[in-house]
């Protein structure tokens, strides 16, 4: 119970610091969260990017002022997981359920033509529609409704510095290692189909997609962080 709630007009440095810190964190998140979500839609990315940068500036300002806000590494990790899951989900959901929309038939197939023919070769020919590359649909069905949803939820809990957020981020980051290894193996086995006459073939795919290696950066942190900083 704070001195303010007792009706006493006594300055309380700790309570003030906590209140100011909480407000500073909320202020930063109010910019970063919509920014990150808009960027995961890809199409609205140009609106989301400046919002996100503004939030980062607010977060850094609060840290420099010595306020008790989330450590920068947790902020980066949480939002990176949100963007990783969101960008993967939007692309794969478009292909899975909206393959005959104009956006899919222009931008998804154009992306396929540029980086990975799995999204161009015989597109919209299977009865289920969308990508026709062997194995691709199975990954979409397996990952979008399970792993990426769980990762999004875990990232939100993690950004709130909740213990369950930390635990579920560990679980879903290990899922991430499995899908990276499985996906790259599948893609490599069908490389002739996927990289013949692509604008930026194998090296292009790697330059574009290497930044989704979030799980490999998150796991060492999640296993070495002092878990006492997360609350129930």
């Amino acid at each position: 119970m704070s001195t303010a709630s007792l009706g006493l007009d006594v300055p309380n440095g700790y309570d003030d610091h906590q209140t100011t810190s909480r407000e500073a964190q909320r202020k930063a998140d109010r910019w970063m969260l919509p920014g990150a979500i808009l960027m995961t839609t890809a199409v609205l990315g140009p609106i989301g990017f400046p919002l996100f940068l503004k939030g980062m500036v607010e977060q850094r300002k609060a840290l420099l002022q010595g306020l008790s806000v989330r450590p920068m590494i947790c902020t980066l990790l949480g939002y990176l997981v949100i963007m990783d899951s969101g960008l993967n989900s939007i692309g794969w959901s478009l292909d899975l359920v909206a393959h005959h929309s104009l956006v899919s038939r222009t931008l998804v197939t154009a992306w396929g033509n540029m980086f990975d023919s799995g999204y161009f070769w015989h597109y919209n020919e299977l009865w289920i529609g969308g990508a026709g590359a062997p194995g691709e649909k199975s990954w979409e069905i397996a990952l979008v409704p399970t792993v990426f949803c769980m990762r999004l939820a875990a990232a939100i809990g993690f950004l709130q510095m909740k213990r369950w957020g930390h635990q579920w981020l560990i679980v879903t980051c290990w899922f991430g290692v499995i899908y990276w290894v499985g996906y790259v193996a599948n893609m490599t086995l069908f490389a002739d189909l996927r990289y013949t006459h692509v604008v930026f073939p194998v090296w292009g795919w790697w330059i574009y997609d290497i930044f989704y290696i979030t799980p490999f950066l998150a796991i060492p942190y999640l296993h070495t962080v002092n878990r006492e900083v997360f609350t129930d």
């Binding site: 890809a42 590494i73 979030t214």
Partner: peptide, 30 residues
């Protein structure tokens, strides 16, 4: 370890932010 991980996370986050922002406009132009 944490310092290097933070740098890596920052690079990835910036790159994903730029990719998320510019992929579709870039494809449209190409």
């Amino acid at each position: 370890l944490h310092r290097w991980l933070q740098r890596g996370l920052f690079v990835c986050l910036t790159a994903l932010a730029l990719e998320g922002t510019f992929t579709f406009p870039g494809l449209l132009v190409w």
